[in-house]
């Protein structure tokens, strides 16, 4: 049984693989992974996700800029959660994020953290 469709956007392939495995096997999500803003937009157009996990620090188009591009496609109903290595929660929430998860994260605990934010 799937918890839902989750779009993961991160430029680092290792993180994409580890997070995907944890979210699918532990959390029961159906995960689509994107490496850039462009891939994320294509993925959203192809299949609207239930949740987006978005890395803040990415080359070219960073997390907040990617969110600005995704938001018109997602509408207000799809929660977006930022992944960040910097302790900058407040201004990310101000951008309309549903929550922030600190990097580095414990992969086993990641599905629980996502669930805690989407349950709000």
């Amino acid at each position: 049984m799937s918890a839902g469709r989750l779009l993961l956007v991160d430029d680092e392939p290792d993180i994409r693989m580890i997070a995907t495995m944890a979210l699918e096997r532990v959390g029961g999500w159906t995960v689509t992974a994107a490496a850039s803003a462009g891939e994320a937009i294509a993925a959203v157009r192809a299949d609207l996700p239930d949740v987006v996990l978005l890395d803040v620090m990415m080359p070219d188009t960073d997390g907040p800029a990617t969110l600005a591009q995704l938001r018109p496609l997602l509408g207000d109903g799809v929660p977006v959660i930022f992944l960040t290595a910097r302790g900058e929660t407040d201004h990310l929430l101000a951008l309309g994020a549903a929550g922030v998860i600190a990097k580095p994260f414990d992969p086993i605990a990641l599905p629980g953290a996502v669930a805690a934010i989407t349950a709000r």
Partner: peptide, 13 residues
């Protein structure tokens, strides 16, 4: 930090 994060995550899984 970056590779350590990947190693730790993989080992955890």
């Amino acid at each position: 930090r970056t590779p350590l994060t990947s190693i730790r995550g993989s080992l955890g899984l």
